[in-house]
Amino acid sequence: MPEIALITGGNRGLGRAYALALAEAGVDLILTYRTPAKDAIEAVLAEARGLGRTAVAIPLDTREINTFDQFTATVREALRTTWERDDFDFLLNNAGTGPGATIADTTVEMVDEVFAVHFRGPFFLTQKLLPLIADGGRILNFSTGLSRFTGEGLYSAYGAMKGAVEVFTRYLAKEVAPRGISANVIAAGATATEFAGGGLLDENVGAYIGTQTARGRIGRPADIAGVVVAMLTGDTGWVTAQRIEASGGMLI
């Protein structure tokens, strides 16, 4: 029986990379997406199915915690009707947004958005989904290199909220340990995706970031996806409550 991963924000960027890398590794998928991304998520589903995997998509806005009960019920039904199971194996709390501004220019609305998407949403979504995660399963939350270094100084709210995710992950790891579930956080360095407006796709930006990393280049989605696959499908169950930075040695 194939393992099943639930990935929030699986329609683009790193979420898409994680989904397809896991599909290549033989993992079936439940992907979430916000409604405007329906065409994008259909393309990801088609690619995953082309790799021989079973994949379904369910709309979800992680800011809307009042929808989490219905979402959980929909996941339960999808597991029953598609896989004849009542649980899944891997939860990846990936959905995100990255508004950038100096502290002086950061608004209350920006902080509220980052809190809702990156902390409140994953916290309560995980709470709702814990009964559906198989004993011995694995949870991955996602942080950022910007919780360790300040970069250009434009992401104080985002970096601070990801620091909160890292603390949450340690508490989560302790709580789920009796069920044999591990919980870790992956902190990606600068990676060339559409995230935060796609500025990291600019060649000049990428070249500059390359001068700041030990490996001499900006990250690629496949770099981070490889870590995700290793943590979920490798013999890494003994690793838990850890922050794993995948940044190519950025700003060391």
Rank of each mutant, 00 (worst) to 15 (best):
R120Y: 14
A48Q: 10
T107M: 12
D28P: 06
L45D: 05
G249Y: 12
R217E: 02
A160W: 02
A21W: 04
V185K: 13
I41E: 03
L92Y: 08
R53P: 03
A21G: 04
T82C: 10
A116H: 12
E194P: 01
T150Y: 01
T144A: 05
G98Y: 11
R217H: 01
T32W: 12
G96M: 04
E3Q: 15
P36Y: 14
A246G: 05
M161L: 12
M250G: 01
T233K: 01
P122I: 05
F124L: 15
N204H: 05
F168G: 03
T107I: 12
R85T: 09
L14T: 10
T32I: 13
P122L: 10
T169V: 01
V27W: 02
L6G: 07
A17C: 06
V167I: 09
F195Q: 12
G50D: 06
M231N: 06
I103W: 09
T144R: 03
I252M: 15
R12V: 04
G137M: 08
I139K: 01
R120M: 15
P122S: 10
V114F: 08
R170H: 11
T240D: 03
G52S: 09
W238K: 01
T233H: 00
A104V: 10
N93V: 04
S182G: 09
V111W: 09
Y18W: 07
G136S: 01
G96R: 04
V44G: 08
L22R: 11
A5K: 07
A40L: 12
F149E: 08
A196R: 14
F71G: 04
V167C: 06
A177P: 04
Y171A: 11
T35L: 06
R179I: 08
A19E: 14
A57I: 02
V176I: 05
G52I: 08
H118F: 03
F195Y: 14
L51C: 02
G121E: 09
N184H: 07
A17N: 08
N94Y: 11
G210C: 00
A177E: 11
A230I: 02
T35N: 05
G10C: 06
H118R: 05
G206H: 12
R12P: 03
G199Y: 05
P178G: 12
V56T: 15
E175Y: 02
L20Y: 09
V108F: 15
A173L: 10
D202G: 14
M231P: 07
F90M: 05
I41L: 07
F71I: 04
D202E: 15
G234R: 00
Y33M: 03
R220D: 13
A101L: 15
L14H: 12
E77Q: 15
T81S: 13
T106Y: 11
G199I: 00
A207W: 01
F119L: 15
F123S: 07
A157R: 08
F88S: 05
Q212A: 15
L172H: 06
I209T: 15
V228L: 01
R80V: 00
N93A: 10
Q127V: 00
